[in-house]
């Protein structure tokens, strides 16, 4: 059976994509969830659809267009809210819808049929190219380097920005670099799960881990592990059941989250009971 699986080149490329995507999702996702910038990341992802449209219309690589739109919108939202020019969620709401609208119009204006629309919205891991994989690998490497080299600075800046300004004059620079890297990461993973689904690929694994620990040092590697397990499971399942991969991965993630919540609830209940029995013995 495993033989079937690896007989096809696209299946191997898909498997490599699963691994790289999990590393990206675990590292960037931990940051997104801990800083509570899930909505911002959602805005970035959807805005990048405008770039996909632009790529189709102007005839260049849609992923490059998406990366451009994603990073630009992330920085714009960061600037607007950082300068208090407008509330962050309003800024994101506008950017979100603008990107989607621009994408639809540009694709509509492109002559001929646009066959990839569904794959951009819901992902198509089986169509990843060698180029996509190289981009994902570079991204994963960048994230590992950035977050391990500046681990403490990044975490402390996220926790208490005002205090961080007393020991660093580059708080704003780091905020922009982080937003740019997160935007790029999310956008490159659109191939795997699509514009609409990719965000849960990033946000569910850290939420699973945070049921069991509240220590950032542990959340990151554990999220990578949860992400890899569930993406690999979803990927394999979709292959044997012949159903869409992106959607299967997300359903797998949600099921894992629910199971872990249940386990957490049982642990809590057992804990309470042992406390109660200790109290009654007193």
């Amino acid at each position: 059976m495993l033989h079937d699986f690896f007989e096809y080149g696209f299946m191997v490329r898909g498997a490599v994509a699963v691994l790289l995507s999990s590393i990206c999702a675990g590292i960037a996702g931990s940051y997104i969830v801990s800083r509570r910038i899930v909505f911002l990341s959602g805005g970035i992802t959807h805005a990048s659809f405008g770039g996909i449209g632009l790529g189709h219309w102007a005839g260049f690589n849609p992923v490059a267009g998406a990366a451009l739109f994603g990073v630009a919108s992330g920085l714009a939202a960061g600037y607007l809210s950082g300068k208090r020019k407008m509330s962050e969620d309003s800024a994101i709401g506008i950017i979100w819808a603008f990107g989607m609208a621009a994408g639809i119009i540009l694709i509509h204006m492109t002559p001929g049929y646009a066959p990839n629309l569904m794959s951009y919205l819901f992902g198509s891991i089986l169509t990843v190219t060698r180029g996509d994989l190289i981009a994902l690998a570079v991204m994963a490497l960048l994230l590992v380097l950035y977050f391990s080299l500046f681990y403490r600075a990044l975490v402390y800046m996220a926790f208490d920005e005002e205090y961080a300004r007393t020991w660093s004059s580059s708080v704003d620079i780091f905020r922009y670099i982080s937003i740019a890297l997160i935007s790029l990461t999310v956008v490159l993973n659109i191939r795997v799960a699509g514009v609409i689904l990719v965000l849960s690929l990033f946000t569910i694994p850290p939420n699973v881990v945070m049921l069991f620990t509240n220590d950032y040092k542990r959340i990151v590697p554990a999220s990578v592990a949860v992400s890899f397990t569930s993406v690999a499971a979803g990927y394999t399942l979709s292959f044997y059941l012949g159903i869409p991969t992106g959607a299967t991965i997300i359903i797998t993630l949600v099921v894992i989250y629910l199971v872990c919540r249940l386990i957490r609830a049982i642990i809590n209940r057992l804990g309470e009971r042992s406390v109660l029995s200790l109290n009654s013995k007193k």
Binding site: S34, V155, A158, F159, D160, E162, Y163, Y216
Partner: peptide, 17 residues
């Protein structure tokens, strides 16, 4: 009010900052 009370960080890490 300045710090984010929900950020997942241990007491030791906060003190070391």
């Amino acid at each position: 009010s300045q710090a984010d009370p929900h950020f997942p960080l241990t007491v030791t890490d906060v003190v070391m900052s």
